[in-house]
């Protein structure tokens, strides 16, 4: 099987086994997946299904013990060294001693951007996540949702084509989550990045994705890959449409099949 030129992330029979005191844990087993440029891919499944491990493997924060995984045609480690992706963690993880602007500047300082360039980019991404005017605030002065937006801005500040997000809105309430989901879609449309998005919310996965990867635990594996027929333009009301409900059903079925019984 040959990948097209558009393939950004390719996994072939990827396995990852953790050695623990209680014996080996198969976090990932025989994972096959192709993510194309511009895709919005959600990884969904119950905890322990390896969705975060898979995302961390793509980011070279974990190393698969079997199979091949390539990012932009390189090993994940090489891609990381080339700063191919921005990563958004479950918690905002802003450094408390830096202002919001200072936090967004962090990757730019490390990557050696000039001061003028840093200033431009900080302003641009703050506007992108609708936090203009909050640059001088410290993280604790912002709400949880605003902090997470700032951490997304931090991941967007440098020129990575790939954005990896690990349950970025998991700790936020549903109203804030809905708004941020809309904003992420807008961001995705404006920046044309390839996005990998881990979630355990079915509506979130269906609403955001062009491709939904359903996973199941013990061993962590992919049970279904759904290409979404939903249009790129997605108002929140789309969640009441027939297509949306059908996909959500299929995701739920996939999750159920992986468990071998009712979820």
């Amino acid at each position: 099987m040959t990948a097209g030129n558009d393939a950004v992330i390719e996994a072939r029979d990827v396995s990852l086994t953790f050695q623990t005191a209680d014996g080996p844990v198969h976090a990932l087993k025989d994972v096959n997946l192709t993510i194309n440029r511009g895709d919005f891919v959600s990884f969904i499944g119950p905890s322990g299904c390896g969705k975060t491990t898979l995302l961390r493997s793509i980011a070279a924060l974990e190393y698969p013990t079997g199979g091949t995984l390539t990012v932009n045609g390189m090993t994940p480690d090489e891609a990381r060294q080339k700063r191919a992706y921005g990563y958004v963690f479950q918690a905002a993880g802003l450094y408390p001693w830096r202002t919001i602007a200072g936090n967004i500047r962090l990757p730019l300082e490390i990557m050696g951007y000039s001061r003028a360039e840093q200033k431009d980019r900080v302003e641009r991404v703050l506007e992108l996540v609708e936090l203009s005017g909050f640059g001088k605030k410290y993280p604790w002065q912002l709400s949880g949702g605003m902090q997470q937006r700032a951490s997304i801005a931090r991941a967007l500040a440098f020129d990575a084509d790939i954005l990896l997000m690990d349950e970025p809105f998991g700790a936020l309430d549903e109203i804030v989550r809905d708004r941020l989901n809309e904003e992420v879609l807008k961001l995705w449309a404006r920046t044309e990045k390839t996005i990998g998005f881990v979630t355990h919310s079915i509506p979130e996965a269906v609403y955001l994705s062009t491709k939904i990867v359903v996973m199941s635990p013990r061993p962590g594996r992919i049970t279904d890959i759904i290409d979404s027929p939903l249009p790129k333009e997605r108002p929140l009301e789309i969640r009441d449409s027939r297509d949306f409900i059908e996909i959500a059903h299929r995701v739920r079925d996939g999750l159920r099949a992986g468990h071998g019984d009712g979820v």
Partner: peptide, 27 residues
């Protein structure tokens, strides 16, 4: 782990990790 992982995703060196994360965090 998250804060150190973040620097890893930027491919930051040990000295940058010290100056930008470990030292300020240790204050």
């Amino acid at each position: 782990a998250m804060q150190t992982d973040l620097l890893r995703t930027y491919n930051a060196g040990a000295m940058q990790g010290l100056g930008k994360l470990r030292f300020p965090a240790s204050m």
